[in-house]
Write a protein that binds this DNA or RNA. Structure first.
Ligand SMILES: [Mn+2]
Ligand SMILES: [Mn+2]
Ligand SMILES: [Zn+2]
Ligand SMILES: [Zn+2]
Lengths: 136, 136
DNA sequence: TCGTTGTTTATAATTATTCTAAAGAAGATT
DNA sequence: AATCTTCTTTAGAATAATTATAAACAACGA
C-alpha cells in the first residue's frame, strides 16, 4: 500500500505537478500487488470505479503518455485496436490470449536468454520482446 | 517472375475469383525476390505506381484480409498507427527500426530456438514472435 | 497575494479501419 | 449467347482510437 504522499513525491521528482487527477491515476495504476496490463479505456473506467471521481479521457491519455515517457509504464507491442500498457517496466515477455484479449507476464526464465546473432550497422538494440499468442 | 496465369490459379484454388484488381495486387505483393513488409497505405500507393491502375482502398483492405485469412500474408505485431503485413508467412522474427519505421526479417538461426517453459491450462501456443527494436 | 507556468477539460479534428449498398464482373446454367 | 446467381468492387459514410485546441483552472514560487 503506497501512500498518497509517496505518489506526490514521485510526481514532484519527475517534474509533474501532483494534481488530484494524477494522484488518483497513480492509486489505480500502482497500488497493486501484481503487474497490471491495461488499455486507456480500461483505466478510464477503473478510475471512476475505484476512486469515485471522474478524470477526463484527455487527461488519462496525457497522464499515461507522461508516465510512459518517464519510464513508469511500458507499451506492449501487439496488434489490437487499442494500445496496451503495462505497469511492469522491466524487460519481460508476454502471453497474449487472443480470445480473451488478455496479456499475461512471462518471466525471463520462462523464456530463456535470447541472443540476437545479427546486427545492423549504425543501429543498436533497444529492446527484445517475445510475444506468445495463445489460442484454445 | 511469377506469371499472371499462376496467380489466377492460386486465386481459383483459394475460391477467390481472379479479378483484375486481385491479380494486380498479387503482382505487387508476390513478384519479388525478397520478403515484403508493408502497410495498407504502402500497398495502395505501390499498386498505382507499379501497375498504372488504381484499385480502390476498400478493395486493398478486402484483398489483404482475404489473403491474410488464406495464409498468404502474415500480420506483424508492432505498435504503430498502422498495421504491418508480411509476405513471408513462415515463422520468423523481426527487427523494427523505430526511426525509419521499417521491419527487417530475422532468420530463426539469428535468434535461436525459443522454448516457452510456462503453460496456461486450456490454452495452446499459436505463435511465438520476437520483436527487436532498433535505435541509432 | 500575484504572476507564471503547467494542467485539465470539453470538444473538435484526425486517421486507420470497417461498413453499406449499389453497380459491375465472373461463373454456372440453359 | 442470353440469363441467372453469386461474388467483387467501389465511393462514400460510419466507427473508433487517438491527438490537437484553447479556454478555465490549479499549483508553485516570489
Ligand atoms: Mn507485462
Ligand atoms: Mn518478415
Ligand atoms: Zn506513450
Ligand atoms: Zn487480417
Amino acid at each position: 500500500m503506497i501512500s498518497k504522499q509517496e505518489f506526490i513525491e514521485k510526481l514532484r521528482n519527475s517534474s509533474l505537478r501532483p494534481t488530484k487527477q494524477r494522484i488518483n491515476i497513480c492509486e489505480v495504476l500502482f497500488n497493486r500487488d501484481k503487474t497490471f496490463h491495461f488499455t486507456i479505456n480500461d483505466l478510464f473506467n477503473l478510475i471512476k470505479d475505484k476512486t469515485g471521481e471522474k478524470v477526463s479521457l484527455a487527461t488519462v491519455y496525457n497522464t499515461v503518455h507522461a508516465f510512459h515517457k518517464k519510464g513508469y509504464l511500458k507499451e506492449i507491442p501487439i496488434n489490437s485496436n487499442q494500445t496496451y500498457f503495462d505497469t511492469n517496466v522491466t524487460d519481460h515477455h508476454h502471453f497474449f490470449d487472443v480470445k480473451e484479449e488478455k496479456l499475461i507476464d512471462l518471466k525471463n526464465e520462462d523464456v530463456g536468454p535470447i541472443e540476437i546473432q545479427k546486427s545492423i550497422p549504425g543501429k543498436k538494440i533497444k529492446s527484445v520482446e517475445v510475444l506468445v499468442k495463445l489460442e484454445d
